[in-house]
């Protein structure tokens, strides 16, 4: 039998990154400051997690200006969507195993 732990996504094992992808799954896009408010993080800490997701190409970054202020929006990529689904399946398999 395959071990569901092997199927966990290394990047998404970090709860905050998983939460960011959860938000982007149900919302077409989300901007930096809204993410910061919802997740209750500091600028620096959120930026680190965003970088990690960006490196894996799980999210698409879109930089625009609103009233001359920079406004960075994030969108989930197809790769991110698949990684999220795979990770969630692995999580569910693990929880199911633990309940046995």
């Amino acid at each position: 039998m395959s071990n569901p732990f092997d199927k966990l996504d290394k990047t998404l094992e970090h709860s905050v990154r998983l939460q960011i992808l959860s938000i982007l799954i149900v919302n077409d896009f989300f901007d930096f400051s809204s993410l910061k408010d919802v997740l209750n993080l500091t600028d620096g800490s959120l930026a680190t997690h965003i970088k990690a997701l960006e490196r894996e190409k799980y999210i698409i970054v879109n930089k625009t200006f609103v009233d001359r202020k920079p406004n960075t929006r994030y969108k989930i990529s197809e790769k991110g969507r698949q990684a999220f689904k795979k990770h969630l399946d692995a999580l569910e398999a693990i929880v199911k195993q633990q309940r046995k």
């Binding site: 998983l18 939460q19 799954i25 149900v26 919802v38 999580l91 693990i94 929880v95 633990q98």
Partner: peptide
């Protein structure tokens, strides 16, 4: 098991984030 595992709380937080940001 008395306390929920990290995996369970991860699943719960997915749901919370989805609902809190879209509803």
């Amino acid at each position: 098991m008395s306390s929920e595992s990290k995996f369970e709380s991860d699943i719960a937080s997915i749901r919370t984030m989805m609902e809190r940001t879209s509803k």
